[in-house]
Design a protein around this nucleic acid. Structure first.
Length: 385
RNA sequence: GUACUGUUGUUG
């Protein structure tokens, strides 16, 4: 049974759900009783793939077989709910496990906190955070990164900073992830002085800033239209012995692109190819954006073709970007063709797709058509925001 | 003998 469990875990981990299922059936066929680990791995496998329904079914099956789920299995299911943003289901499960007399672990609390934060309920998250110690769960470094990250994403920079200080002063064993979480928060405010101060502190504490640390700073600079400063950080990164990764290049390309420097963006693409990295759809999307910013619409479309030949399929972002470009130049015929093309290719338009199309059409004063699209958008189940 | 959680990148 142990061997089967290991195999199921492996297949789940690598996303080969059919094989995991096959192994599960084979195991039962051999007359071996699945245990809580077996079911836990299955919940995890399907949960990771976002298949909540099935994950939940395995959890229930486990009970029907007379097995009692333990805390890690509860955590696995709860984390599945978190990943797909089903806060209510997560809260319900938490209430249930307590009612059944289980003691949540720190992990349970961490998942709960993250669920609340991702749903924007930062206030509630803080309350839970304040209560967890009384429930026998001492916050750990995961707890703090989750909270700092949540507060930061909610724009509550000072609170995030305060929580971080509390953690450091309170003697919690910190790691680089907790520092990076705060770094992201500070970087987004554009206050580089604070960012570099934190970088110093990171080193002083004996950590080496990693690619995520540097990428975070580069991204912040790029977003404030300082591609050269971002490039400088790239240099520092290399100097300090930290190897740039695919994301570093994507960020750098995006920095140049949003600044409108298509030439530099392209040059960076060449550099990343030289370094042996394989560009992604995201990479091309940034480049296309850059060409659009630079007014090089034909070049943008050339790249649109090129990306395909390099094995990067355009996605909804690519199409949105191109349609917006065309709409803003009044080329609505072409934009409409692209819109049709994306649907034909099975790329589901999202809220942004409809928004840019409606926007383009509205420039043409074709309000009836715009209204029709608006209706279609709702009919397609697209959120109207 | 086996498990669960946190940090960075692309579009309106």
């Amino acid at each position: 049974r142990f061997a089967y469990n290991v195999i199921i875990r492996y297949f789940g981990h690598s996303g080969q759900l059919d094989l995991a299922m096959e192994t599960f059936r084979e195991m039962k066929g051999m007359g071996l009783e699945p245990d809580v680990y077996t079911y836990g791995f299955l919940v995890n496998a399907f949960g990771k793939a976002g298949r909540v329904q099935e994950a939940r079914k395995f959890f229930d099956d486990m009970r029907d077989r007379g097995l009692t789920p333990n805390i890690p299995t509860y955590n696995l299911l709860m984390d599945t709910f978190r990943k797909v943003g089903q806060l209510d289901a997560a809260l319900e499960l938490f209430a249930e496990l307590k009612k059944r007399g289980f003691r949540p672990s720190v992990v349970t609390y961490n998942i709960l906190l993250d669920s609340l934060c991702s749903a924007g309920r930062v206030r509630a998250a803080k309350k839970v955070f304040n209560k967890m110690a009384g429930d026998g769960c001492t916050p750990d470094s995961y707890t703090y990164s989750t909270l700092v990250n949540g507060l930061g994403k909610a724009g509550r920079v000072e609170e995030a900073h305060k929580v971080h200080r509390e953690m450091v002063d309170g003697g919690v064993v910190v790691d680089l992830v907790t520092y990076n979480s705060l770094l992201v928060t500070l970087a987004k405010t554009g206050n580089m002085e604070r960012v570099w101060k934190l970088m110093k502190e990171i080193s002083r504490k004996g950590f080496r800033p990693d690619a995520i640390s540097f990428n975070t700073i580069m991204d912040a600079l790029g977003k404030c239209n300082k591609p050269d400063a971002a490039h400088e950080v790239f240099g520092r990164m290399v100097e300090s012995g930290c190897k740039p990764d695919l994301i570093s290049y994507n960020i750098l390309i995006d920095s140049y692109a949003r600044f409108g420097d298509a030439a530099r963006a392209r040059q960076t693409l060449e550099e990343m190819l030289d370094e042996g990295f394989v560009p992604e759809t995201k990479t091309y999307n940034s480049l296309i954006h850059g060409l659009g910013m630079d007014g090089q619409v034909d070049e943008a479309f050339a790249l649109f073709e090129e990306m395909e030949s390099k094995g990067c399929s355009p996605d909804v972002v690519t199409y949105n970007r191109l349609m917006d470009m065309l709409g803003k130049r009044g080329e609505n015929k072409k934009a409409a063709l692209l819109f049709q093309q994306m649907k034909d290719r099975g790329i589901k338009p999202d809220t942004i797709s409809y928004t840019v199309r409606i926007d383009g059409i509205a420039y043409d004063d074709r309000l009836d058509d715009a209204l029709m699209l608006f209706k279609e958008m709702k009919a397609m189940g697209c959120a109207v925001d």
